[in-house]
């Protein structure tokens, strides 16, 4: 079913929904997943992002998103200057990513506490995005849902703990997937839900044995 406001809208800073609005959303997603203010960002542009990115302001849009701006923020074109004031250091490079969508980017981020994160994402059209890799693990989620990203040790099965916690809060699960980099490696659970997960449930899940980290991405309007 087509959303009427996908036809009339979104409200966005131009020029391109895939190369500008989508790039802002990728930056914002990365900031959320990092869970803190980024202080350093290495940006690797792939495919059409590398080729026509400058003309479309893709570079500025990515930094704008990392600074937390929304897709309709008029400061997107000034993001480099604002990054300077907010002490976010960044660099750009062109790269070839394997088996990646033409509009892809890899971000290597360092947060203010020193936390590091690697994310690869693609802008798949109309401003919609897909996170393809997180800290080296192949994943696939879009941010079209509220999303829990749970990292846990492989030898612990937390699936039932997590689903119990979610059903406790009557949160409806739309999609659920498990990913891991190698056999015996840490596991990443991606859970997309129809409703946002209440804070106390996120905390509850965090406290379960074997859970390393829980990030809750709240869908944007």
């Amino acid at each position: 079913m087509i959303d009427v406001f996908d036809i009339m809208g979104p409200i966005m800073v131009g020029p391109s929904s895939s190369h500008t609005a989508g790039a802002v959303r990728i930056g914002r997603m990365a900031r959320t997943l990092l869970g803190e203010k980024p202080v350093k960002a290495e940006v690797y542009l792939h495919g059409s992002f590398a080729e026509t990115g400058v003309g479309h302001g893709t570079d500025k849009a990515l930094i704008a998103g990392l600074l937390g701006m929304a897709t309709d923020d008029l400061d997107i074109p000034n993001s480099f200057e604002i990054a300077g004031r907010r002490k976010l250091k960044f660099s750009f490079e062109e790269t070839e990513l394997r088996d990646a969508h033409p509009n892809s980017v890899k971000l290597v981020l360092t947060g203010e506490s020193g936390r590091k994160m690697k994310m690869q994402a693609s802008s798949i059209g109309g401003g919609r995005i897909m996170v393809d890799k997180l800290d080296g693990v192949d994943v696939s989620f879009s941010g079209d849902y509220h999303t829990l990203i749970i990292q846990n040790l492989d030898n612990q099965s937390n699936l039932s703990d997590v689903s119990t916690a979610l059903s406790l809060a009557r949160v409806n699960v739309a999609n659920m997937s498990m990913h891991r980099s190698a056999k015996g490696g840490n596991v990443m659970m991606i859970i997309e839900t129809d409703d946002p997960v209440p804070g106390y449930i996120v905390e509850l899940i965090e406290k379960q044995p074997g859970i390393l980290q829980v990030i809750h991405y709240v869908k944007e309007d």
Partner: peptide, 18 residues
């Protein structure tokens, strides 16, 4: 032009045709 110059527009149905 506003779209090309990174101003705020309403995609209708797309940014190019805004």
């Amino acid at each position: 032009e506003s779209n090309a110059c990174m101003r705020r527009v309403v995609a209708a149905p797309t940014a190019g045709a805004c």
